[in-house]
Simulated assay, not measured.
Amino acid sequence: MSDTEALIAFLRACLDEDWNCAAAAGHGFGHLPLLTEHNGGWTRLDLDENVRPSYDVRYLKWFDPHRMMAEVESKRRILDLIEPPLRGVYVDEGEQVMAQQLLRVLAVAFRGRSGFQEEWAPHD
């Protein structure tokens, strides 16, 4: 397996893991006390009982499971678009270079995950 193929496989595995985590987390927020679990562990927030700063609450609302699943799907589609040039399907060298750069940029989000290789990081 080439380095590029290994990176693609790594990214797809990370995206699958993110998708599964978000799907298991439940959906949205309600009016349950803080730390009350619902739908597989997604903690719902009640602002009246919440001791978190408002920016923490806003962050948790913006990055709910639906949003995370949409982001995973977007990244999967980007991979689908850049994979053919990476495999040499198109002959334009500029297209291959751009696809390689995009692949490395996608990898940055998973830098802390087990299996990430530093050589996958974007070149400055």
Score class of each variant (00 low, 15 high):
A13I: 01
C14W: 00
E17G: 11
E17F: 00
N20R: 13
A24F: 00
A25G: 03
G26S: 06
H27Q: 09
H27D: 10
F29A: 05
L32D: 07
P33Q: 12
P33W: 07
L35W: 14
E37V: 05
N39I: 03
G40A: 07
T43V: 11
L45E: 02
D46F: 00
D48E: 10
V51L: 14
R52W: 13
P53E: 12
V57Y: 01
R58S: 13
Y59D: 13
K61W: 04
F63H: 15
F63V: 08
D64T: 04
P65R: 04
R67K: 09
M68D: 07
M69Q: 15
A70F: 03
E71G: 12
V72C: 15
V72T: 15
E73S: 12
K75R: 15
L79A: 07
I82P: 00
E83L: 06
L86S: 06
V89K: 12
Y90D: 07
D92I: 08
E93L: 13
E95K: 08
E95T: 08
E95Q: 14
M98V: 08
R104Y: 00
R104G: 07
L106Q: 14
R111C: 02
G112H: 08
G112S: 09
R113H: 10
S114Q: 14
G115V: 10
F116P: 01
